[in-house]
Design a protein around this nucleic acid. Structure first.
Lengths: 116, 116
DNA sequence: TTTCGTTATATCCGATTGACAATAACGCAC
DNA sequence: GTGCGTTATTGTCAATCGGATATAACGAAA
C-alpha cells in the first residue's frame, strides 16, 4: 500500500520535511541535539546543520540551545518549535486522509492485469 | 504563502514525485525522452535513468519507447503512464486543499510577534 | 542504400554530500 | 578551579551524483 511523503516549501526559501520534523521531536524527547542525532543514526554535525537551517529559515528560533553547565548543556524546542511539529503532523494527517481514495485507485491500477 | 511538495512511496520500493511526473507530462507533450529532458534543463542521461526507474518500479511499462525510424524514434506514455500522471495530480490537489487551513495557521504563527 | 534523430550505453570528471575527527568554548556542580 | 558533556566550528576525505561526452544500434523515409 503506497504512502505519502510530504514537505512544506516555506515563504521565500526553506523546506520542512519528515527528517527535520523527526529531529525536532527527538530533541524535545531527549533534550539535546547530540542525543537526538544519535537516536536517528545521524552525525552531530548533520543534526547541528539541520537545526541551524531551521532556526535560520524562521525569523525566530525553533530550537533553544544552552552551552555549558554540569551536563554540558542541551537543547529544547521553543513554543514555535512545538507549534511547527504539531502543524506539520496535522498537515500530514489531513493530506493522507484526503489522498487515501486516490492512492487506493492508483494501487489497483498497478495491480490490474496488463491492458496496455 | 507556503506550499506542499508531495511524493508517493510505492509498494516495496520506488518513489514518485513532482520531477518524474513532470518528465512524464513532457514526454507526453513532446514525444521523446530527449526533448522532454531538454525542456526541463535535464541531461538525456538523467531523463533516461528516470524513465528506466519508472518502468522498473511498476511491473508494466509507463513509457513506451521506439528506436530508429525516419526521425530516430521517440517515446510515448502507456495508458498506465497517463493514469499515473492523472492520479498523482489528483492526489496533489486533494492534499493541497486539505492542508490549506493548516498551512495558513502555520504561516500566521510564523508572522506573529515573538512570544517565545 | 543513405540519411537522420532518437534510444541505448559506457567512460570520465567535477561538484556535492555527509561522515569522521579534532578542537575550542561554555558554565554549572563539585 | 577542575571535571564533565554538551554546543560550536573547522578540516579532511571517501563516496555518490549527475553533467558532459562519445559511440553504437536502430529503422522508417527519401
Amino acid at each position: 500500500m503506497p504512502s505519502l511523503s510530504l514537505r512544506i516549501n516555506l515563504d521565500p526559501e526553506g523546506r520542512i520535511g519528515p527528517g527535520k520534523v523527526e529531529l525536532l521531536e527527538q530533541i524535545a524527547a531527549r533534550g539535546s541535539i547530540a542525543a537526538a542525532g544519535r537516536s536517528m543514526g545521524m552525525s552531530y554535525r548533520r543534526a547541528w546543520e539541520l537545526v541551524e537551517e531551521l532556526n535560520g529559515v524562521f525569523g525566530k528560533a525553533v530550537v533553544a540551545r544552552q552551552t555549558g553547565g554540569r551536563h554540558g548543556g542541551g537543547a529544547t524546542l521553543t513554543p514555535l518549535g512545538f507549534a511547527l511539529v504539531a502543524r506539520f503532523r496535522a498537515v500530514e494527517r489531513a493530506a493522507a486522509q484526503a489522498a487515501e481514495v486516490h492512492l487506493a485507485a492508483l494501487q489497483s491500477e498497478v495491480d490490474l492485469p496488463a491492458d496496455n
